[in-house]
Write a protein that binds this DNA or RNA. Structure first.
Lengths: 125, 125
DNA sequence: TGTCTGATTCGACAGACGTCAAGACAGGCG
DNA sequence: CGCCTGTCTTGACGTCTGTCGAATCAGACA
């Protein structure tokens, strides 16, 4: 990732984000929207949504790229690109161990997003 | 981007969608991903995320376009375009009453999305 | 009827996105 | 060392997206 920091924010939502009163409870301020929208955007592709699920639901909490790639009818570079998108959105972490690279979900941000979308149970459908 | 459905799917997620065991619990099947990803995608823009919040948190559960538009530094057509995107994603409903058009959130799909992102509280950050 | 206001649609444009092939990089092994 | 396998980066291509101005549609009202 030998790039300048400008293009790769690598959001850290684990800590001081102006987090998550439910979307339907208080109006989301522009700054919060700017921070969280990229995470939703990252989940807004069917392939990435499945990748996210495969990683988050994997045994041991992590998944190897070598297991993810063959699950799709896409080339390796394309999967790698999607994983990079998830990484830059702060949704997953990557770690190289020997030959293989493992991806791990970051539950904190998932909880934030879920909290944002939470709806009062008394609200009608 | 992936495919593009003919034109206006206008997803109805209120009923028979193969809904929502949490993303981290069971791997999301391709069909479910294809149905839900567009909803996340619709929320993946800061303007739409704020629009969604303004609508969902509005008094009476609905918001007039005339109240939404001036909250942004964007033209009317652009706001209208974003609202159309939210509508096509099944996140909101529109209703014209006289001169004004009112938008109303659809809690059911918000609940589905929130459920998908739910994480076991025992999971570490 | 005509006109005014609010909202959407249309047409166009720059920029971003998803995808692939080809190449580069990293680590293991002979 | 060289070679192999797994992963990522680069460069390119076509499509989609966000935005605007202009035109159009829908009601209200005189």
């Amino acid at each position: 990732m030998s790039k300048q920091a400008a293009s790769l924010p690598v959001i850290d939502l684990t800590a001081d984000t102006p987090c998550c009163p439910p979307l339907a409870q208080r109006r989301v301020p522009a700054e919060t929207a700017a921070v969280l929208a990229p995470a939703f955007k990252a989940l807004g592709d069917p392939v990435r949504l499945q990748l996210m699920s495969m990683i988050a639901s994997a045994e041991g909490g992590e998944a190897c790229v070598c297991d993810l790639t063959p699950a799709f009818d896409l080339t390796g570079p394309t999967i790698s690109h999607h994983l990079k998108t998830l990484r830059e959105a702060g949704l997953v972490d990557a770690e190289r161990r020997g030959t293989w690279v493992y991806y791990r979900a970051r539950p904190a941000i998932l909880r934030q997003l879920a909290g944002l979308l939470t709806v009062d149970p008394t609200a009608a459908a």
